[in-house]
Amino acid sequence: MRWMWIDRVVELVPKQRLVAVKHVSLAEEHLHDHFPASRGRAPLPVMPTSLIVEGCAQTAGILVGHAEDFREKVILAKIGKFEISRDALPGHTLRYTATIRQMDKVGASTVGTIELIEHTATGSTATTIGSIDLMFSHLDNNMSGHEFPEHNFVFGESFRTLLSSSGISGNW
């Protein structure tokens, strides 16, 4: 199983926008190491920011891949900008929204937002806590001229499982 950092795709407007959610759980082992108790400090389980970036990249990457029916090998090539203002803690939900800004044969640029959804006894509230600009390369058309294996090693079984469990079907 590939490391998936989104739990479900909740909206897909092909070639335009994809929204995905990630539930932060105390059952995730890495939260116990990020950060463990140390002398004079209690444990502080916080979703690692690098994995939030990965979740955003998977959200946008699926959107870009889906636009060409997953024929292209879509690889994250550049993080143009990333800002985040709050920590995500166990019990929170992160909602990632990715939008394609530009796309051509060589790759795509996307913009994204990160929302933090806090659950309470009476409901939940969503707050935008970050934004991200990403660039993706279509590997087989990359400008450096490098060649890669023919099979699509990017969008494997894990991505297909995620899409089908999110109710998204297609001929891929």
């Binding site: 550049k78 143009g80 530009q102 660039m135 390369s137 400008m143």
Partner: peptide, 14 residues
């Protein structure tokens, strides 16, 4: 680097 060329193309278009 190579991906920057695509970024520059996109930004010039915009």
């Amino acid at each position: 680097e190579s991906i920057d060329f695509l970024d520059i193309v996109f930004k010039l278009e915009q």
